[in-house]
Design a protein around this nucleic acid. Structure first.
Length: 422
DNA sequence: TCTGGGGTCCTAGGACCC
DNA sequence: TCTGGGGTCCTAGGACCC
């Protein structure tokens, strides 16, 4: 079992969750969107899903992860907006700066939410509710964005209560009242319980967290294994093992880096498929070099027209961060496993199993490899300035068709809508 | 309705070693 | 040799999160 990290005294954890983050950021750039039904993630007839929907759009059943085309049907008058990751990153950094004023233990759990360990900050910021309102106000002043704050004795309670506080609210679950707070909520509200687990629980007649809490721990373990045990703890509001049970703000190293691409139209054109794999390999390699990581395991992801998806991996004896080596492995996997002629919907490249080659492996690096590495670092710089498509490795792929995407990696003017016109 | 892209964690089986 | 068990590495798939 994971090390129990629950200290003897109650912790005070804040979960800060930005309200309709992507939509709110877009409204800062275009105030005319305010108060309207807005969908961020792409255009109404594109392949893709909703990244975020305004509260006005949600009234029509639009929610994140819904296909854009479905959203367009449910809410025809919605305004569809492409996402702008750079804008969100920039705002996210502002959010982080505000949070740091309140606690040294801050952890961004994603681009728009964070945990703070506020234990022992009463002298500085006052009791939890007062501190939270102060934080809420500072956040609005500094970022012009609304957030919701959940406060509890565990990450789990903080997270669940911030969801209940939405929109634009603060909710404190007083220590000792955890089970009472959770009992009437649907099991789906527990982080980690998704569609499938919810169905399993419903089949057992378990609808509410309270139903779950009444069950024997041993029965849950028997039914759902390790997960069942954690679930029993969660029903009581404990962080019970896994990621939740880690110290707030502890730095975690990345475990994988991946890029994938869904084609606007399915394709069986081997040139298009392989040039896409090369582009994805380059993107992965580039990020490895930026993070100074070397990968040993490379994985190809292949999704066919009918949505059946396979992954095929290979582990190298020696770690690498070179475009050419990565692409070679990926291409070999692809040629071996792609059913020739079958229409492909998506391709993906993933690197994992990182090793930092300390000394020893650096010595093994041949002069030839070092030369490549230097050249590729220069290529990275160029891509920073001129966009992902400006530099391509000289190889058999040179000059071949590359699919036009609607991405604008370098944020260049004139590369968006206007260029799409023939 | 026709399903993105970036991640994490878990399970389960087989290979291989001692 | 007709049968073991633990440990580690590797691979594939799937649930889940934002």
């Amino acid at each position: 079992m994971a090390t129990a990290r629950q200290p003897a005294f109650p912790r005070t954890i804040f979960h800060v969750d930005m309200d309709a983050f992507f939509v709110s950021v877009e409204e800062l750039y275009d105030p005319s969107l305010q108060g309207k039904a807005v969908v961020v993630g792409g255009q109404r007839n594109e392949r893709g899903v909703v990244s975020a929907a305004s509260y006005e759009a949600r009234k029509f059943g639009v929610h994140s992860a819904m296909p854009l085309r479905t959203a367009a049907k449910n809410c025809p008058h919605a305004i569809f907006v492409d996402g702008h990751p750079e804008r969100y990153r920039e705002c996210s950094e502002k959010v982080y700066k505000v949070l740091q004023e309140f606690s040294p233990q801050v952890e961004m759990a994603s681009i728009d939410e964070a945990y703070l360990d506020m234990t022992g900050t009463a002298r500085l910021h006052g009791p939890p509710l007062k501190a939270a309102h102060k934080l809420h106000q500072r956040m609005k002043e500094e970022t012009l964005l609304n957030c919701s704050i959940g406060i509890g004795s565990s990450r789990l309670i903080a997270k669940v209560s911030s969801a209940q506080a939405k929109p634009n609210g603060v909710l404190w679950i007083v220590p000792g009242k955890e089970a009472t707070f959770l009992a009437p909520l649907n099991v789906r509200e527990i982080p980690g319980v998704g569609k499938v687990m919810e169905k399993h629980l419903h089949d057992l007649g378990i609808m509410k967290v309270g139903d779950l809490a009444r069950l024997e721990e041993s029965e849950l373990e028997q039914r759902f294994g390790k997960w069942g045990l954690a679930l029993a703890g969660k029903a009581r509001g404990e962080d019970a093992g896994g990621w939740f049970d880690t110290q707030v703000g502890a730095h975690e190293e990345a475990k994988s880096i991946s890029h994938e691409h869904t084609f606007n139209e399915d394709t069986a054109d081997i040139n298009q498929l392989e040039s896409t794999l090369m582009r994805l390999s380059e993107m992965v390699a580039r990020r490895l070099r930026e993070a100074n990581l070397y990968t040993r395991t490379l994985q190809l992801k292949l999704r066919y027209k009918d949505f059946t998806t396979i992954t095929r991996a290979r582990t190298l004896p020696v770690p690498t961060q070179l475009d050419g080596e990565i692409f070679e492995q990926i291409r070999t996997l692809f040629r071996k496993h792609w059913k020739r002629g079958s229409q492909v919907r998506l391709l993906g490249v993933q690197a994992s199993h990182f090793e930092n080659p300390a000394g020893q492996l650096n010595l093994l690096e041949t002069a030839q490899q070092q030369k490549w590495k230097d050249a590729l670092t220069v290529a990275d710089r160029l891509r920073d300035r001129f966009g992902e498509s400006s530099v391509t490795l000289a190889s058999g792929m040179r000059g071949q068709f590359r699919e036009r995407t609607h991405e604008n990696p370098a944020g260049l003017p004139g590369k968006g809508k206007s260029r799409r016109e023939p």
